[in-house]
Design a protein around this nucleic acid. Structure first.
Lengths: 243, 243
DNA sequence: GCATGCAAAATTGTTAACAATCCATATTTT
DNA sequence: AAAATATGGATTGTTAACAATTTTGCATGC
């Protein structure tokens, strides 16, 4: 027998591997901003928190760093990523490129089954929005895009976009304007209609519009919404305080 | 000497980090097929080979696994990836999607400087080809696509495509037909001409054609060109030997 | 008062030993 | 003889201690 090559099979039962759990846990904390951008992550503290060895925390760090959710600095440690404005713009630009292809592929071969899958998801988004569950709404909003990627039937693209969406979530958490931003669920409905129209160009244009809209709702001009930046809080330029 | 592709910029000085070195070393061995698909990688052997600790080998494994160049199986170890035919098809399909966007972006804003960068690269490909340096030709061929990604001016896309190109290289190494395949350098010239034409649609079409051509040159119908598969060597079906 | 340098504490990086798991061979059982 | 089952060796997974580095607090000098 042979092939020793199963990607990542869970051990048989529905048992969740601890490493996966820790990744998810930290992911949630980052996207919730319980861990703020720039914050230092101390290995031993986390190890004790999750009752695992430092080695495992280290491995988790590598994963998170690969997804650009934390920065790993040699001899200094791990820090929650602080995506710059340029990075944010590039991420949304990359998504535009990729989701353009996704949407075209779906529009070209829309089936009733796929359509109802999307509709079902929209329904959930709708419910969360009306229930006022902001957090769920944001998560579902990301999953909408992931669903489209899945329907495009290409695992490579799906996995990449998944990471890009996580990264987007961090960006949104970091740069979102004071008022709620997840009004985008109506845009998702517009998108579905475009997809049902069967015109790839139209659907792609709609997706581009949607992603640009998300980006534009962010406050990407602000220098840095950092933790305790007294200088900006009190309206001074930190570099030239006493000039 | 050697490292063909410099994927991640090194820190300030020319100091090469050992971890990066090991990754590059193993990468080279995989793409050269000195390490064959399916082969087991034993931590301690590698640790001794590179004179580092097992922990570092482990960290390198995580990186390689993330790039889908090896498979990590819990409690069993690490194995050189054996991309399936379906995977191969999906990788090239994903590249079509992404490089479509790349090429369009470049075609839309071609400058003399960018054009000469591409021409310069083509010249190098040309030289390697005429010098009969097969290995260099394959590497340069991949770097051509990477150059285009770089010119598209989006780091996110660039990094992703870099990984996808590495994965493609493994696929090509695994499925390439007996006769040389790097005749594609002339296709790259065709591609440059399309880019210079300034017509995004035409350029994108050319790229799609090129990627399909690469894929079609592979022997993606063969079940598995495994190491010592006597059954297939002697023209028998391994499953039903005695029927 | 502010900068500089030193020393201690905290933190990361590394190593080695130990435990758990898997694999192949040998042995027993049917 | 074939299947099932023990057994030993090899390999991965984990832990804890140690070394190296960075950070922090404090004292000193200007």
């Amino acid at each position: 027998m042979a092939n020793p090559a199963q990607p990542t099979p869970y051990k048989g039962s529905g048992k969740l591997r601890p490493e996966e759990l820790i990744y998810q846990e930290m992911l949630g904390a980052i996207l919730d901003r319980r861990l703020e951008p720039g914050m230092k992550l101390i290995e031993e503290d986390l190890a004790k928190t999750f009752s695992v060895s430092r080695a495992r925390i280290r491995a988790t760090f590598l994963q998170l760093a690969h997804d650009k959710l934390i920065n790993l600095v040699p001899n200094r440690g791990a820090f929650i990523a602080e995506p710059t404005i340029d990075e944010a713009i590039e991420v949304f630009s990359a998504r535009r490129m990729i989701e353009d292809g996704v949407v075209r592929k779906i529009a070209a071969k829309m089936t009733p089954d796929r359509a109802s899958q999307i509709r079902e998801h929209l329904e959930r988004e709708h419910q969360a929005h009306h229930a006022g569950d902001h957090r769920a709404a944001i998560i579902l909003s990301g999953e909408f895009h992931l669903l489209l990627a899945r329907l495009a039937d290409n695992l490579v693209i799906e996995e990449f976009l998944e990471r890009l969406i996580l990264r987007s979530s961090l960006i949104i958490a970091m740069y979102e304007s004071p008022q709620p931003v997840d009004c985008s669920h109506s845009e998702h409905e517009t998108l579905l209609n475009a997809l049902l129209g069967g015109d790839p160009d139209a659907a792609a244009a709609e997706m581009a519009k949607h992603l640009d809209a998300i980006r534009d709702r962010l406050q990407l001009q602000r220098p840095k919404p950092a933790k305790t930046d007294f200088a900006s809080i009190f309206g001074r330029n930190p570099k030239s305080v006493a000039s």
